[in-house]
Design a protein around this nucleic acid. Structure first.
Length: 437
DNA sequence: CTGGGGATGGGGCCC
DNA sequence: CGGGCCCCATCCCCA
């Protein structure tokens, strides 16, 4: 016989103990603010704490102290409240930082909820599309409602992700009911993801400075990486409040009837004259297509679903990966890297340096004195790309093999020269990179 | 220190 | 809607 409310009451009791500082054996210091919690609970909720606490002293009589600078006390409050209640208080303003912190703490369920929160920003119902939304600050804010959403723990696989919070007519939304309020354990797939995050955590120390891998550390996520994004991040809070609206559809009149003011008379605008636009909830960017917004959002979330199997570098877009692979690993350009002259299969050769390939003309090869290196294609490890299908399950922030790559690429001992043979190269491309067209 | 080139990343848009 | 191409901006490296 199972008492369904037991888990809930147990968690409630633990939360009560935390509030009263009873049996708390772990101090968490976040930017000077001290949080008290139970080792057991933290251990069970976070891969980071699991590692930390299992590595820390076996002496259990002394309270453990953990210090964080990567996120704010407010963010950790949201995380800790979730740990002790199963409820995650997400808003358009805090979701990025909460996801960043969850990534740092290896809390895959929280990451999933944050991802869904962001992704669901794109899910605009047909009904809503038929409506006219004003973009003015006045209208956005005039609802006078708190748009924060409370997610209760991990939803079950068969449950739909939350969408209701998108409606501008709705305010606070509580994901209640059995499906949402039951506390769940990590499903096996999430455990795998957690292990990957764990690996990432171990790699953090070797993170390089390269700006191209700007989202290396979880803490970087809310800070963005390009100057453009930094500018956006530095925008005043007023703007954030405006863009807090998850996704707005802007109806733009492209006819001579440009005099329609926002917020009134919209229902008389013929649909044929209206252009749907999608506004990013995190910046001022507006795109015409939902797919473009989805792509754009990756620059906020740091999602890099396309890993290069040759070097491990991850890309946010397939075409960037494709371009990278062609340029770096396939030596597609028939140009001598040194003298920039056009080379053919007769006048040049492909040089392989680690996983990097480029072409050199015969003269430059002779000059460099590397023409004597024996080609050993049999021994050469093939560059293989993964098949499609795992991209979504594999992305996470800061996953970075760059340090390994640089070691490989800098190794002059890996220098291999191949005969230039475009036909062979194309065959190689098909074999090596099945997911790149 | 500076300019050029390469690599990368983001947006627009076509297929 | 995803894939892919083109364009452009930015950053980094190197001569």
């Amino acid at each position: 016989m199972e008492i369904s409310s037991h888990q809930f009451h147990l968690l409630q009791q633990l939360n009560e103990q935390r509030r009263q500082d009873l049996f708390c054996d772990c101090n968490i210091l976040v930017e000077g603010k001290v949080f008290k919690a139970h080792r057991n609970v933290l251990f069970a909720s976070s891969g980071y704490f699991k590692m930390l606490l299992s590595q820390s002293s076996k002496e259990t009589t002394q309270p453990t102290t953990a210090t964080f600078q990567a996120f704010s006390p407010d963010t950790f409050t949201v995380i800790l409240d979730f740990v002790y209640s199963g409820k995650l208080s997400l808003t358009g303003q805090n979701v990025i930082e909460v996801m960043s912190a969850a990534s740092y703490l290896q809390m895959t369920d929280v990451i999933s909820v944050c991802k869904t929160f962001i992704k669901s920003s794109l899910d605009i119902s047909e009904k809503e599309k038929d409506r006219y939304f004003s973009l003015s600050d006045k209208d956005v804010n005039s609802n006078g409602v708190d748009r924060s959403c409370l997610y209760s723990s991990v939803w079950r696989a068969e449950s739909s992700p939350p969408r209701s919070h998108l409606s501008p007519d709705q305010g606070t939304c509580m994901m209640g009911g059995n499906t949402w309020s039951n506390f769940s354990y990590y499903p096996p797939s999430q455990r795998n993801a957690q292990q990957q995050l764990s690996k990432h955590e171990q790699r953090q120390d070797s993170v390089k400075k390269s700006r191209h891998l700007g989202l290396q550390q979880p803490s970087d996520i809310p800070h963005y990486k390009s100057s453009k994004l930094e500018d956006r991040a530095a925008e005043p809070a007023g703007h954030i409040a405006q863009s807090e609206e998850q996704v707005q559809i802007e109806t733009e009149v492209e006819s001579p009837h440009v005099g329609y003011p926002y917020g009134q008379g919209s229902d008389v605008i013929p649909r044929s004259l209206a252009v749907m636009r999608f506004k990013c909830p995190f910046c001022t960017h507006v795109v015409k297509r939902k797919a473009d917004l989805k792509r754009h959002l990756r620059c906020h979330t740091g999602e890099r679903p396309y890993p290069c199997e040759a070097c491990g570098k991850r890309f946010s877009r397939l075409d960037h990966l494709s371009s990278h692979f062609r340029t770096i690993h396939q030596a597609c350009k028939p140009i001598c890297r040194k003298c920039k002259r056009h080379v053919t299969e007769l006048t040049g050769q492909v040089v392989q340096e680690g996983t990097r390939r480029y072409r050199l003309c015969n003269e430059c090869l002779a000059e460099a004195g590397i023409d004597s290196i024996r080609i050993d294609l049999e021994a050469e490890a093939p560059l293989e790309f993964p098949q499609d299908g795992d991209k979504d399950s594999r992305w996470h922030y800061g996953e970075d093999n760059r340090s390994d790559v640089e070691i490989v690429e800098d190794g002059s001992t890996d220098l291999v020269i191949q005969q230039v043979d475009d036909s062979e190269d194309e065959a190689d491309e098909k074999e090596v990179k099945p997911n790149i067209r």
